[in-house]
């Protein structure tokens, strides 16, 4: 059974149809990329899946159970974590604390545990901090563990966002343009990271403009344009799909290249 299913999902903002009747599904352990020109509705689809926008119609199912209409934190608890296109870290929290916020929902510590620093609170705090530090270490961020997120270099901020998402113990990770603004070296590292996460059994839904990265890591690709799904298939199929070329280069692009 598919892990995530979008069943004719539609999102309308007033008169604007941002996502129109989009359906696709993701299998466990799969990396699915969503591509499309700017304004195609990719991020809106993400926001619908993570509960930031209520969908206008359709159904979103995780593991066969509908999650449409749930608030974002409930969806995170069910196992969907995400990063944002325009990095949304907690700027004035340290890197460790950013990651530890990811652990918020599964920590057992209550307010009074924290207030009275009970044994439970201290031991849990210690173990979560330990885990956060080791997560940062694995992503090569330990040098910045005590720095504020906004003091970190841009590329590392992207990594930190992934670390925060991983701390929520997700089954499905949504990455919204993780390679944007990265240099080629960092892109290679990112590709390796995504491959490693896939090997560890994480399912990934990816929005990305860098075609090299997309073609390399994805099992399947979904192409959106003007809110509609115009193609779906393996990287090789999508690359040669005339509708995709038209969406990216404009109508008549093929004729123009021919006459030139």
């Amino acid at each position: 059974m598919a892990l995530l299913e979008l069943d004719s999902v539609t999102k309308r903002f007033g008169g604007l149809l941002a996502v129109s009747n989009v359906s696709f599904s993701l299998d466990r352990g799969e990396i699915l990329s969503m591509i499309g020109p700017n304004g195609a509705g990719k991020t809106t689809a993400f926001n619908c899946v993570t509960g930031l926008f209520p969908i206008t119609s359709g159904q979103i199912r995780l593991d066969g159970v509908s999650i449409s209409g749930l608030p974002p934190h409930r969806i995170t608890k069910l196992g969907i974590a995400r990063t944002f296109q325009n990095i949304r870290l907690f700027a004035f929290m340290t890197a460790v604390d950013n990651v530890m916020v990811g652990a918020h929902w599964w920590m057992k510590e209550r307010v009074w545990d924290g207030a009275f620093q009970t044994k439970r609170a201290r031991s849990e705090e210690r173990s979560v901090q330990q885990r956060a530090l080791s997560l940062l270490d694995q992503l090569g961020l330990s040098r910045y563990a005590g720095s504020y997120a906004r003091e970190m270099p841009y590329g590392l901020q992207r990594k930190l966002e992934i670390a925060r998402a991983l701390a929520t113990q997700p089954r499905l990770l949504l990455l919204d343009e993780p390679a944007a603004g990265l240099n080629s070296h960092e892109k290679v590292e990112l590709m390796q990271l995504i491959a490693r996460l896939r090997d560890e059994g994480l399912t990934i839904l990816l929005i990305e403009h860098d075609m090299r990265l997309v073609m390399e890591v994805s099992h399947r690709i979904v192409v959106l344009d003007h809110g509609e799904k115009i193609a779906e298939g393996s990287p090789a199929e999508v690359r040669t799909n005339p509708r995709v070329i038209e969406a990216y280069l404009g109508t008549g692009a093929s004729e123009a290249t021919r006459s030139a």
């Binding site: 608890k77 907690f90 929290m93 916020v101 918020h104 929902w105 207030a115 009275f116």
Partner: peptide
């Protein structure tokens, strides 16, 4: 007590909320 709370799970959640409510919600904070 307030000093302890500030440094605990809830205190972190407050700061996260202050910094970015959307990200906080998407990171599992109610």
């Amino acid at each position: 007590l307030l000093y302890n709370i500030e440094r605990s799970r809830v205190g972190r959640a407050w700061v996260a909320l202050r910094e970015d409510e959307v990200a906080a919600a998407a990171t599992g904070i109610n």
